[in-house]
Design a protein around this nucleic acid. Structure first.
Lengths: 123, 123
DNA sequence: CTTGCCTCTCACATTGATGTCAGGTTTTAG
DNA sequence: CTAAAACCTGACATCAATGTGAGAGGCAAG
């Protein structure tokens, strides 16, 4: 498929796909005319890239991790293993942080609701 | 206290504190010479701002929420209430997403480990 | 009063992912 | 074959938070 179709299927912009390629996260074969062609597998790959992005991983970090996804075979997995463990930790910490923040928001909301109720009672 | 001390206590840069003020997230009294002065409470406030930032809230959104923290009294809490509920939802969704991403990482790590073990056995 | 440190404002730089525009080429539909 | 639609490269723009540097002024200790 061409880049527009992949973009539609993966729900990202054409611009982003070109950027991913520029960053070495995604490869494509080229037609005689120079247009990029992708396979069905790339849809899932792009989705995974997106997932890592929204998890706060940088493009650079994703670049380090993806080889492991491609070929869990070389000794690059040694480095990737460490990287993944590290990112997993960071992710866990971040999740904990978000949970605490959500709790804090809940507290604020309860307070606001209490005030609202008080106003209601007064009216 | 002056800005440097607050920055140290809250663990943020002086630059950031000025930025927060510019964005209306933080206020300060000024000395005769024009220097900013803060109270002890501001330490907690800055920490809370940081918390919301790392939760992915934009400066603009935080601006809308903070009045509710300041005075849970006006009808601004009506708008703030809605905002908070919306952000809470967004946060929950994001947390779910991160959890799934962490699971995905775990799967990758298990695969990598399996390969490592296989190599170990072969050796 | 002077020296040194902290602060002030203003303004420009940075980072990362993406938007957008321009000018040109390829592919596809009719 | 031709026109429209999709694609190409390259470059500049954007946003948000923060860094950084210049030039000037405040403030406390000696």
């Amino acid at each position: 498929m061409r880049i527009g179709e992949l973009a539609a299927l993966a729900g990202v912009s054409v611009r982003s796909l070109r950027y991913y390629e520029e960053q070495g996260l995604l490869t494509s074969t080229r037609s005689a005319g120079g247009q990029r062609h992708y396979t069905q597998d790339d849809v899932e790959r792009v989705a995974f890239i997106q997932r890592l992005y929204t998890a706060g991983l940088s493009s650079r970090t994703v670049t380090e991790l993806l080889p492991c996804l491609d070929s869990p075979s070389d000794e690059n997995s040694d480095a990737a293993m460490e990287r993944m463990a590290k990112e997993r930790d960071r992710l866990s910490t971040h999740i904990e942080d978000l949970l605490r923040t959500r709790d804090a928001l809940d507290v604020l909301m309860v307070a606001a609701q209490a005030h609202r109720d008080a106003r209601q009672t007064a009216a």
